[in-house]
Amino acid sequence: MAHLTISKLLAKSAAKKPATRRYPAEKRTPPKGARGRVTMKQLETCVFCGVCGKKCPTRAIAVKRAEKTWEIDRLKCILCGECVEVCPKDSLTMEEEHAAAFVAKRIESHVQRPQPAPPDPP
């Protein structure tokens, strides 16, 4: 049995700078390869095949072919990364930074504008 066994540890950590960050002033950079949020990187390449939506385990993505829209409900997304892996056109990407908190439910929607020269046929 020993007393005050933690004092050495406490003295050591008192001499060091704090283990925590001064949050809003100093932000954490997420490591490479972290799964932060799914984003539509290149809307022009998307062919609205709907594979990402079908593969999504939580059905967070809705793809409307006729209207050329790609939508994501971030509150449903579990950040598994399946959609990014399966997209045949590499339109999606997984960013390391997390999405900011929401105050209201919303669906993020991307609509492809008609393009002068159509992208490579599906």
Partner: peptide, 12 residues
């Protein structure tokens, strides 16, 4: 854990 797997708590 996050560096190797991409998630902090849910490895996925």
């Amino acid at each position: 854990i996050e560096e190797t797997s991409g998630g902090r708590v849910i490895f996925g």
